[in-house]
Computed example of a mutant assay.
Amino acid sequence: MAALVSSSPTLSQVLDRADVWRGDTLARAPLPGVPTGFAELDCELPGGGWPRGGLIEILPVHRGIGELSLLLPALARLSTDELSWLVCVAPPHPLHAPALQAGGIALSRLLVASAPGRDAVWACERSLAADGVGAVVAWLPEVQATSLRRLQLAAERSGTLLFVFRPAACASQSSPAPLRLLLDGEGEQLSVRLLKRRGGAQPAPLSIAIQRPLRLSHALACPASTAPVARSLSRPAIA
């Protein structure tokens, strides 16, 4: 009688899976990452860039240190090369359109939702479920853990970049985000510490030189009376 052949996978086959990684190495991402625009940061991220389909939590020690400038190269790439929509949800200050444009973002692909409280999470979920959205950037300082979990699952289903800004004090809290960054610095120098990533621990913070369009004192913001208004989330493009 012919010997039965086991159909169980070998250890090497299991380790070759994209959703399995060793504790001392970076995980292999199922999708290529979106280049951050900073080579030193790309080298530290699974997939070689911002991971698609997962919550990316960004924790600046205070607002205006250049946190949005860290995202500009990737957002510009999505809006111009991939012609994707960019959705900003609940920004704490009016976004300054000339600064965004100077950073390479196609303003015609930008939508802004000034959604207060729980509406901000709803706006994020609607945006993640919409076709053609390349990235969602949200400011959710008081978001609940259950809402973060919902956003993480929504990002996984959509394969869309999801950036969520929260206060640095949240660093000690647990989070479903597979990638968490703590930001510090001033001027055009940013210190980036990877608090959490799929892979080994980061040995030391990265020092990254950023460009701050128009040298604005507050990250890409200006008084509401003079700020050009980006298009509303309620437009049919992503309804």
Rank of each mutant, 00 (worst) to 15 (best):
L72Y: 00
D81G: 00
Q13L: 09
L70D: 11
S114M: 04
W50Q: 05
A74S: 15
L75F: 04
P46I: 10
G49P: 08
L86E: 06
T80C: 14
R77E: 13
Q101W: 03
P51G: 11
F38E: 00
A74L: 02
L72F: 08
C88Q: 09
W21H: 15
V14F: 14
G47M: 15
G117E: 01
P116H: 01
D81V: 14
L41D: 07
H96S: 01
A27W: 08
A99C: 07
S84N: 06
S108Y: 01
R109L: 01
R28E: 01
H96V: 03
L41S: 09
S12L: 14
E44A: 14
V14L: 15
V112C: 09
S69M: 09
L55E: 04
A97M: 09
P60W: 12
R109C: 05
L15V: 03
R109W: 00
R22W: 03
G66H: 05
P46K: 01
G49E: 11
A97H: 07
P98T: 02
A27M: 08
R109F: 05
E40I: 00
S8P: 06
G53H: 02
E44W: 07
I65G: 12
R63I: 02
L31I: 07
P94D: 10
G117W: 07
L68E: 11
G64S: 01
L107K: 01
H96E: 02
R63K: 09
R22A: 03
P92I: 05
C43A: 14
A27L: 01
S108I: 05
C88G: 10
D42M: 05
P91L: 00
P46Q: 07
P94F: 06
R52N: 10
A74G: 13
L70R: 13
S6W: 13
L31P: 02
G37S: 10
I56Y: 04
G37Y: 01
G117F: 03
I105S: 00
E44D: 12
L111C: 04
A29F: 02
L111P: 00
L26G: 13
D16C: 14
Q101T: 12
T36Y: 00
R77S: 10
T36H: 08
L11K: 15
D119T: 08
S108N: 05
I56T: 14
L100W: 15
R63L: 08
C43G: 04
Q13S: 15
A27Q: 05
T25P: 00
V87A: 06
A115F: 06
L111A: 04
S108K: 03
L31A: 15
P73R: 11
P46L: 04
A115Y: 00
L100C: 10
G47N: 11
P35W: 02
S84G: 04
T10N: 11
W85Q: 09
P32A: 14
A29S: 15
G104I: 06
T25D: 15
R28M: 06
L68M: 10
E67Y: 07
W50L: 00
L26C: 13
